[in-house]
Design a binder for these strands. Structure first.
Length: 812
RNA sequence: GCCGGGGUGGUGAAAUCGGUAAACACAGGGGACUUAAAAUCCCCCGGGCUUCGGCCCUUGCGGGUUCAAUUCCCGCCCUCGGCACCA
């Protein structure tokens, strides 16, 4: 008998798959595919280190799903590509002094080699590389569709700026107000940037969450991120020194319009346009100084919540429209310009932030909500935000807060100084990056015509190879130094003009790649409509929850817009999304600094890809991740060896009835668990089954072992192919609906094991016929020595019988 | 602070429409086979007590509901991930 040699089997089948085109499709095959199943996984960023275990874990879990669908007879399209633009590649390239245009291709090559080695069912004929001009040509095309539809606009926005690195920093690169690399204090700068108007779609992005089948945690993350809140927008009239209205009104947004009677001051954000006009002449120096300081702070420090509140009085006043009283106007950086109207009515009695601020600056705190047991004069030790009744609130005094929001809003809008309003936390999507390594934004700036779209026929706007791509003090992209590149003529008036020198965000690259995959061989269009119709939306998308918000939200948004513009006929890109867990080592996230990074190549070398895949799927629930322990791989390794030995030595003949029952039970369980991504328990069930088949050293007949070979195929595809061939089948196990069926009549047990308890404590276990009468089961249970001992001399109060599970005697 | 996971043997974990807690596997121990080793097969493996029949305790902690709670309810603690003054 020949033994299992993983490397030989794996090389053989990887060669055969490639030669036969087992996993690749031609254009005609994609057009005509029957029962198509688009199995998508999040494409990787091809780092210089190569694939890490986390990647392999995610891809294997997704590949298992695709292979299972294929064994069920679906035509499964499972593409793989590379998300290779962006700041990570660029910083790494700068660090090692290699140009990203040289670095990325070699990383991609290495990734491809590793990906082939783990035995994924990837269609390499339909790969994408976001840095390839043939791909980003269409990323630019998408930008143009947004631009033409009025969904892309240029406006000033603050960014983090490190004066030492001379670069724009992302929020996560600012640690404690300092640059993560050089510890220089970070400043804020205002730069004109391109935005996509995702907030126009906020409500739809939220509503659709109700009818897509996604992991619950992901849905919740999206919901929170969109952050819909209902409230009201109120106007507070500004008054002059004599108390007369100036005609200017401060718009505030509040979710608690019912507490307006308790608004004892108003706060403007430092960036608010009314700051200047409401400030009293004598208060200008401190107010301007405060605004100046606030604008210099980096964006992260600006939003820190644990610092003590700062602010400055403007000396100006406005009228609380509910009480008619004059209240002061302050400026404070705890009010953010980007949310609501950039101004708030402060209700210190019932908002913790306002309370804190009022204490700090000795502003009046008024109670307008009383909890049960409190009255209008009960002093407030802290802001009260709970339920209760309105007090000190004019005609509304006495009303329950549960109804008061609506009632006050109605009153306010009747009075004409406000209206109900819905707000979203979601901001417009800033897609500009003042960086080099990304697709140039396809816009030409012309003195006369303003920003003009590059004609689609002129795409792609190729990113030029510039050797000096280091960012500098200008705060604009390194492309702004490539004069021969950016100088051009206006597509509309032919005057001298200048190209946009910002590149776009990588989330734009990854926002539509799944649409490109099946059409990746078309040069003349981003996607073919017939193929797109046949394959999209994606059936199952598997990826990490770290992308629960941004990537998934942006790709939903792009899909929605493409639908509205008539390019596609669906608006949600992924029917099913499942988040996988994180793989950790020694109870901690893998990281170089901890020295617990698992390098996959030597493991595959030693045990083979099939064992590695099976182990990764076995070590914990796929949705939750697990702890990688090097020794644990012995389990699946031994299991696959035993499965091999059992298969190659299997004889002909009738299956043993007990073994056959176990096999059918196993088919049922695995068929149940695989589509639900219950991989670890499915593998355990197969191990258990093999243990029964081999128990006492018995050898199997083929009918007993063959279903197991097919069921292990998603996990150990190479080995399954080899054994399938040795069983005498033609071609690949994955060509055809070869998944085994279980026979319900062969699953049932004739005897049931029943637990016998006395007062809930286990006293015996009995075996009774499955269809035994209740009276007989109870009689058998009562007759057990150890049961009889515990119930004699006692009152029997109740007997509980759960058929097939237990009998419980309640005595006392 | 808020949102979302999660806390079960020496270890990774299973079992959550309430019904025998610890399946499967790793590590460990014992045995069979072998000249030997590997492989394979069999047995033990949460803690304590035991007259070897069993008994008691045990799913982060404290309460509760129930004949019965890892599972449901209330109040805590710890931990991981995400968000962070969102008015």
């Amino acid at each position: 008998m020949d033994g299992y040699v993983p490397s030989a089997v794996e090389q053989k089948w990887q060669r055969l798959w490639e030669a036969r085109g087992t996993n690749t499709y031609t254009r005609e095959e994609l057009e005509n595919a029957e029962d198509p199943f688009y199995n998508l996984m999040m494409f990787p960023y091809p780092s210089a280190e190569g694939l890490h275990v986390g990647n392999i874990y995610a891809f294997t879990g997704a590949d298992v799903h695709g292979r299972y669908q294929r064994l069920r007879g679906k035509t499964v399209f499972e593409p793989m590509g590379f998300d290779a633009f962006g700041i990570h590649s660029e910083n790494f390239a700068l660090k090692i002094g290699t140009h990203p245009m040289d670095l990325i291709p070699s990383n991609v090559k290495n990734f491809t080699r590793q990906l082939r080695r783990i035995g994924g069912m990837f269609d390499w004929e339909h790969s994408v590389d976001t840095t390839d001009p043939s791909y980003y040509k269409w990323t630019q095309w998408i930008f143009l569709q947004f631009f033409k539809a009025g969904l892309a606009e240029r406006k000033e926005a603050p960014v983090n700026w490190c004066p030492s690195c001379m670069t724009v920093l992302a929020n996560e690169q600012v640690i404690g107000g300092e640059c993560e690399r050089c510890a220089t204090p970070v400043e804020q700068r205002r730069i004109a940037q391109w935005f996509f108007r995702i907030t126009d779609y906020a409500q739809r992005l939220l509503d659709n969450l109700d009818h897509i089948d996604w992991s619950d945690t992901t849905l919740k993350a999206q919901k929170n991120w969109i952050g819909r809140s209902t409230g009201a927008q109120l106007h507070f009239p500004v008054v002059n020194k004599d108390g007369a209205e100036t005609g200017t009104k401060i718009e505030v947004y509040t979710t608690r319009p019912d507490t307006v009677f308790g608004a004892t001051y108003v706060v403007l954000s430092p960036e608010h346009p009314l700051v200047e006009s409401v400030t009293d002449a004598r208060r200008r120096p401190p107010v301007y100084a405060y605004v100046d300081t606030a604008s210099k702070k980096d964006l992260v420090a600006r939003q820190k919540t644990d610092k003590t509140k700062t602010g400055v009085s403007t000396g100006g006043f406005c009228r609380n429209p509910a009480t008619g009283e004059l209240i002061p106007i302050w400026v404070a950086d705890y009010v953010l310009m980007d949310y609501g109207t950039g101004a708030i009515m402060a209700v210190p009695g019932h908002d913790t932030r306002d309370f804190e601020f009022a204490e700090q600056f000795d502003l009046p705190i008024l109670r307008v909500v009383a909890a049960a047991g409190d009255n209008a004069d009960t002093p407030l030790e802290e802001a009260y935000v709970g339920p209760g009744r309105l007090v000190n609130s004019g005609d509304f005094t006495g009303m329950d807060v549960a109804e008061s929001v609506e009632a006050v809003t109605d009153w306010v809008s009747g009075q004409g100084w406000g209206d109900g309003k819905i707000n979203f936390r979601l901001h417009d999507w800033c897609i500009s990056r003042q960086r080099y390594w990304g697709p140039p934004i396809p816009i030409v700036h012309c003195e006369a015509c303003g920003p003009v779209a590059v004609p689609e026929a002129d795409l792609p706007v190729v990113l030029p190879r510039v050797e000096d791509f280091k960012p500098d003090d200008s705060g604009v992209s390194p492309l702004a130094r490539a004069e021969e590149w950016y100088r051009t003529t206006c597509p509309e008036c032919s005057a001298e003009a200048r190209r946009e020198t910002d590149v776009s965000d990588t989330f734009l690259d990854s926002g539509w790649y799944f649409i490109r995959y099946p059409s990746s061989d078309f040069d003349d269009k981003p996607f073919d409509s017939a193929i797109t119709k046949n394959w999209l939306p994606v059936n199952t998308y598997i990826g990490g929850n770290e992308h629960a918000v941004l990537h998934l939200l942006y790709s939903r948004f792009i899909t929605m817009v493409l639908k509205d513009l008539g390019h596609i006929d669906f608006e949600e890109p992924y029917d099913v999304f499942r988040a996988h867990g994180l793989i950790i080592a020694d109870g901690a996230k893998m990281s170089k600094s901890k020295g617990n990074v698992i390098v996959p190549d030597p493991i595959i070398e030693e045990f083979g890809a099939d064992t590695f895949r099976t182990y990764l799927m076995f070590l914990g629930p796929f949705g939750e991740g697990g702890d990688y322990r090097p020794q644990g791989i012995q389990g699946p390794f031994g299991f696959l060896h035993r499965l091999w030995d059992t298969s190659v030595s299997a004889g002909q003949g009738e299956p043993d009835p007990d073994v056959e029952r176990k096999v059918h039970q196993t088919i049922r369980q695995v068929t149940d668990q695989l589509p639900a991504l219950g991989y670890n328990t499915a593998i355990a069930a197969m191990m258990e089954c093999l243990n029964v088949i081999r128990s006492g050293g018995r050898s199997a007949v083929r009918a007993e072992i063959e279903p197991l070979v097919v069921m292990i195929a998603p996990f150990a595809p190479h080995m399954a192919e080899e054994l399938w061939e040795r069983f005498g089948h033609e071609g690949s196990v994955f060509d055809g609906a070869n998944w085994p069926e279980f026979d319900a009549s062969k699953v049932v047990e004739s005897m049931a094991k029943v637990a016998v308890q006395v007062n809930g404590k286990l006293r015996a276990t009995i075996s009774v016929p499955k269809d035994a009468l209740e009276a007989d089961v109870i009689a058998t249970a009562r007759a057990e020595d150890n049961v009889a001992r515990h119930i004699e001399d006692k009152d029997e109060r109740r007997v509980i019988h759960v058929p097939g599970r237990l009998v419980n005697f309640v005595v006392g």
